[in-house]
Design a protein around this nucleic acid. Structure first.
Lengths: 219, 219
DNA sequence: GTCTATAGACCGATAGAC
DNA sequence: GTCTATCGGTCTATAGAC
């Protein structure tokens, strides 16, 4: 929330004649550091998950003192929430970058491919679905919920269009399709397949994409 | 391994004329309590996962002192491992109960259905895939590995047969199919769909089974 | 000289172990 | 029922910018 305020201030000030150079410098320092913190949290969250990630590890990875972390974020939950918000922003940016005239099914596939790529890159935060404190923190985080909602609306629209044009199975409830796509973001198959060492990242993604949309049966 | 020995012993003794009553009684007491412990661990593991499950909760659920737990299992990891071994035994028992003359694809579907049912019943232990201590405990547990291996062999055989008879996509690496089936055991789609309250358990299972084998695309 | 941010010690609670 | 380790969170003394 403070982040959003700071960003919009800088955005508004930038095009002007740069009168208050001093305040902007300090703010930039803070923003850069917050960026580094969120990046570290994102990575650790993807590597070890929320429970096994310690605040000390975050501080060590960023290279700052733990107390300095608490100048930016009031709790471990807020750290994780900030990382989730960042991921949502990246997702929204990716969706916005897709050609608007693409076939709905292709848009959905592109989104799943993006999630799989993120996961293989070790940048998909894994939220152990059992954690009350983190869950409540996320539920109370407007920025996260708004992002999730917007992404879901976008995907939901494509799902309905794809069912209408006959490329997606009309029998399936749209919400089932949505959940099934989201589930690819934490699909353990990726990790297993990668550990096997028999396939390149690109092959792994192609295989999982295929099983997701085509299923296991032969056609 | 000790557990398997114990079970087979009891199984063998039961139909006989019960000659050694005394030693069997004490052993039965221990076995019954161990059974209750494993059942509680299994349930808690499914409900909260390994990290959020505390040994005190296990003791409370069983209704015994925490110290008594450590008479049976040397550590929290061993508790979880015992529960996993039990699940593998149940899986093996289920596989053995399937008609031997079924179509390979039907056998695979039956197994997935069993895993989905177990998960919906809150009896599928969820192993947060990020946990080194639990991972090493399982890797070093022969009973677990043996069970996992035997189940995988069984499923692997059916996969190859199903690909040979044309019911499963021949293009997919068998190991991808195996992992994809295993992944249904911890599929978050089940939980989401159930939380939506729009579908009965049986419908949820049918839907997930369909997306797994038929995919999302229309045919 | 003042003021902020940092580093690192420190505290309290929790949970595993015995 | 006690002991100890770990971890989230806080406090204080210091260094450096202005």
């Amino acid at each position: 929330m403070a982040k959003i305020g700071g960003m919009s201030t800088r955005t508004l000030v930038a095009p002007a004649a740069v009168p208050p150079a001093k305040v902007s410098f300090k703010a930039q320092m803070l923003a850069v550091r917050e960026d580094a913190i969120i990046h570290a949290v994102n990575r650790l969250l993807a590597e070890k998950g929320f429970d096994l990630m310690t605040v000390d590890q975050v501080a060590a990875e960023v290279g700052i003192a733990k107390a300095s972390l608490y100048k930016h974020f009031p709790s471990k939950e807020d750290l994780a929430a900030a990382a989730m918000v960042r991921v949502m922003q990246r997702a929204q940016a990716f969706l916005a970058s897709l050609p608007a005239d693409g076939r709905p099914l292709d848009q959905l596939k592109a989104m799943v491919r993006w999630m799989l790529t993120l996961q293989l890159a070790g940048e998909m935060p894994s939220l152990p679905h059992h954690n009350s404190t983190l869950r409540t923190a996320l539920v109370n985080n407007k920025a996260y919920l708004d992002g999730l909602m917007q992404v879901s609306d976008q995907l939901g629209g494509w799902i309905e269009k794809a069912q209408a044009d006959g490329s997606l199975n009309k029998q399936l409830p749209p919400v089932l399709v949505l959940y099934t796509l989201y589930a690819r973001a934490c699909d353990p198959v990726l990790e297993f397949l990668k550990a096997g060492g028999q396939h390149s990242d690109e092959e792994v993604i192609a295989l999982v994409l295929q099983t997701c949309f085509e299923g296991l049966n032969s056609r």
